[in-house]
């Protein structure tokens, strides 16, 4: 029950009524609210040093993935066994590996598969999760039942274990042994998508269910807004914030997942060069040639960390309640 005395009249322009009753343009509050949420968040974020540092690191690593030649003129496949296991020097900043390949160029070129898998997986997971979660939440009924059952099924499979078994079975497949860099990347990403979309779908379904009963949505509905208009103009803008947070964090998660799967023999395989294959391939030399393992770890961990910290900062900025 709200106080009878504060039911504000609209002659005070500074006061925006939270509930838009009929007669108030139902488009106003939704977009205003969503817009102010994001602009508040932006103001908060550009003052957050952790967020800025994380984003800077992500940008650096992304530039390695997009334009490796900007970072190194050497070809990672140009190897000479005569120069194997050289320690870091002016010629080879990160030394050379057991096959005599320049390790710095490996580290640079290794960014691309790792980041691509994470980016493709996150994009796929988010798109599928948002669409299916929204359909389930919005339409309810058998649509919801069907989607929710599928979600439950996939949820019952521990994520990495599921990915491990699928990729383990696919291990001998030509798809994972291509000469080009992208087919194995795509296969790993697709497996991650198949198992990963349910998380986003659950969040989305929950947000839509709660958004559906907000006053301004009910008002828009009573004014005869169509289903698609309701979803895209009214519900989506407000339900998207948690999804963005999760997507940011999962970019980091998928980078870690790729490396883990590769380490267990179920991800990328040589001659593909990724941070995961660099760690997995050199683990046997860790004792004598520490840099061969520490360098890829030193790139992998801060990258994952940056995404997680950026996601955390986003969450804090988008959800003032959590502070």
């Amino acid at each position: 029950m709200s106080d009878p005395v504060t039911t504000a009249t609209s002659d005070n322009p500074a006061v925006i009524p939270v509930q838009a009753g009929p007669g108030v343009n139902p488009q106003g509050p939704t977009q205003e609210r969503a817009a102010s949420l994001w602009s508040d968040a932006r103001r908060e974020l550009i003052r957050n040093p952790i967020f800025l540092a994380s984003v800077s690191f992500i940008l650096i690593v992304s530039s390695m993935a997009i334009l490796p030649s900007m970072w190194t003129s050497k070809n990672p496949r140009d190897c000479d066994i005569k120069f194997a296991k050289l320690s870091p020097s002016a010629e080879h900043w990160f030394g050379t590996n057991v096959l005599g390949c320049d390790y710095y160029s490996h580290a640079i070129y290794g960014a691309r598969p790792s980041l691509s898998i994470a980016l493709i997986a996150t994009t796929g997971v988010t798109l599928i999760g948002v669409v299916l979660g929204m359909l389930a939440g919005f339409f309810g009924g058998w649509v919801d039942t069907l989607i929710s059952r599928i979600i439950d099924m996939i949820y019952s499979l521990p994520f990495l274990l599921g990915a491990l078994v699928i990729l383990g079975v696919l291990r001998q497949s030509d798809l994972l042994h291509s000469d080009q860099w992208w087919p194995p990347v795509l296969v790993v990403a697709i497996v991650l998508i198949i198992l990963g979309w349910v998380g986003v779908a659950r969040i989305m379904r929950g947000s839509v269910l709660s958004a559906k009963n907000l006053d301004y949505v009910l008002a828009a509905k009573s004014l005869g807004a169509s289903n698609s208009r309701l979803m895209f103009r009214h519900i989506l803008p407000n339900a998207i914030a948690p999804v963005v947070v999760v997507a940011t964090i999962s970019l980091g998660g998928y980078i870690g997942a790729e490396a883990t799967l590769t380490f267990l023999g179920a991800g990328l395989q040589p001659p593909a060069v990724s941070w995961g294959t660099m760690i997995a391939g050199n683990i046997d030399y860790f004792n004598e040639y520490k840099y061969l393992v520490l360098i890829p770890c030193g790139l992998l961990v801060p990258t994952v960390l940056s995404f997680i910290l950026a996601g955390d900062a986003l969450r804090d900025a988008l959800d003032p309640k959590l502070r």
């Binding site: 059952r149 439950d152 099924m153 996939i154 019952s156 499979l157 599921g162 078994v165 699928i166 079975v169 696919l170 291990r171 001998q172 497949s173 798809l175 198949i194």
Partner: peptide, 26 residues
């Protein structure tokens, strides 16, 4: 839930085998 999950596992691995070919050969 058990049936669904087992089916999912079965289906995903079966597709894997179908894509890879007879794993015994490997």
């Amino acid at each position: 839930t058990v049936l669904g999950t087992l089916f999912l596992l079965h289906y995903l691995t079966t597709v894997g085998i179908q894509l890879t070919g007879n794993p015994i050969r490997a």
